[in-house]
Design a protein around this nucleic acid. Structure first.
Ligand SMILES: [Zn+2]
Length: 398
DNA sequence: GAAATTTGACCTCTC
DNA sequence: TGAGAGGTCAAATTT
């Protein structure tokens, strides 16, 4: 079909965003019509930010990586723009990482908290048309596929909803090649979303209009990180480009923010790093950004990983087929995670929504570091990054 | 009647 | 090479 090509191309042209959503308890996600579920932001869902699990297939792998907080380097300087795209140096995520599920650390990942304002769902401002639905293995949640209805716009998104209709994950793929359509619904959606979404810069410009186009069209944009029973991604990213969305400015506004915790995988030679900060739009939410990709296998659980948090019997209802993929899926608990991962070609942006509940993470009372140590959904050990992380980051941002 | 959704079939990719 | 899974198509159905 003709319609096919344009969408196929988008992989190389646009960025794809993956949003691992959480479920919104009371906000029944309506059946999307023209407007697919955008990025609702529920407030309180605390979830392991990126819990890349790969329940799929014959080898379910839980690969969340735990981190260890050591110190807190000063946050990188705010940038004039929200995003910066740069060539990625040379993380080698080749074969050694193959077994690792789809956790694409490549590139920057952004976590965003979805939010509801006054119980109203926050839309992303675009119109979507559903073109398919599939039952994903390892998850009882059906996945719906949406395309942007704008002519020739290659943007798509996948939405997974739990049985009770709550969105558990949203994955954006591609970027819009047009401005947001005029809203006729009179909702607060777009505006709200703009504010909350890292996809928009301070000028209100759509992220899509920014320089997110990869320099080489070879990159597959997918990289996804599921927050729930499902895992993530499926194809290795050859990311040669990293797109960094700097929330620095927004973070600064946050009052007691401005503090980020930097972590790096303690596995020798592993380039993966991540930094955690509070979301600007939701001080209670935590934004975790991963950089790099683990080049090693998931170390043996330390006894506090998923297994421990894994809900038993009932909670498991969600993942009958994916035992390993049970990062204590929030759905099993009360609140569910809502991770938003924007993946550009060659880069993945993960935006997990952290809320209270679930992992017992206290958004308010616990510093980011605590969040990490408490969650421990990963088996990979991370140590707080050293000071030079700043330069590391600066490198990206400059 | 038009547009959107549903849903089974088909295609592609990975293991 | 074949099986399984994810993604997409497109006819049928619904709104
Ligand atoms: Zn679009």
């Amino acid at each position: 079909m003709a319609a096919n090509s344009p969408f196929m191309n988008m992989d190389n042209v646009n960025h794809s965003s993956t949003v691992t959503a959480a479920t919104w308890p009371e906000l029944q996600v309506p059946n999307f019509k023209s407007f697919a579920p955008s990025l609702p932001i529920s407030q309180a869902l605390v979830v392991p930010s990126s819990s890349p699990f790969s329940p799929t297939g014959t080898k379910p792998k839980a690969f969340d990586f735990s981190f260890q907080v050591l110190e807190q380097p000063p946050p990188p300087p705010a940038l004039p723009t929200n995003m910066v795209s740069i060539e990625q140096p040379a993380w080698d995520f080749s074969d050694s990482v193959k077994q690792q599920p789809e956790f694409n650390n490549s590139g920057a990942q952004y976590h965003q908290t979805s939010q509801y304002v006054n119980n109203r769902k926050v839309e992303d401002g675009y119109n979507w048309r559903k073109y398919g639905q599939k039952q994903v293995k390892g998850s009882e949640n059906p996945r719906s596929y949406y395309k942007c209805t704008y002519p020739n716009c290659p943007t798509k998104k996948k939405v997974e909803r739990s049985l009770d209709g709550q969105i558990t994950e949203i994955v954006y793929k591609g970027s819009h090649n047009h401005p947001k359509p005029q809203s006729t619904r009179g909702s607060i959606e777009e505006d709200e979303f703009d504010q909350a979404s890292p996809i928009s810069n301070t000028n209100g410009d759509d992220i899509n209009e920014m320089n997110l186009i990869p320099k080489d069209g070879e990159n597959e944009n997918e990289g996804i990180i599921g927050s729930g029973s499902k895992a993530v991604k499926s194809r290795e990213l050859s990311c040669k480009q990293i797109v960094i969305s700097t929330f620095s400015m927004m973070v600064i506004d946050g009052g007691n923010m401005g503090r980020k915790s930097y972590y790096k995988c303690t596995m020798i030679g592993c380039p993966v790093r991540k930094h955690v900060e509070r979301a600007s739009h939701d001080l209670q939410a935590v934004i975790t950004t991963y950089e790099g990709k683990h080049n090693h296998d998931v170390p043996a659980a330390r006894g506090s990983g998923y297994t421990m948090n894994r809900p038993t019997s009932t909670a498991t209802a969600n993942n009958v087929n994916a035992p390993m993929a049970m990062p204590t899926r929030p759905s099993a608990v009360q609140s569910k995670p809502f991770n938003i991962i924007y993946t550009n070609s060659g880069s993945t942006w993960e935006m997990p929504q952290h809320n209270n509940g679930g992992f017992g993470l206290s958004r308010l009372s616990k510093p980011i570091g605590s969040y990490m140590s408490q969650t421990q959904f990963s088996d990979t050990v991370f140590a707080k990054d050293e000071p030079r992380d700043d330069s590391f980051l600066d490198g990206f941002l400059s």
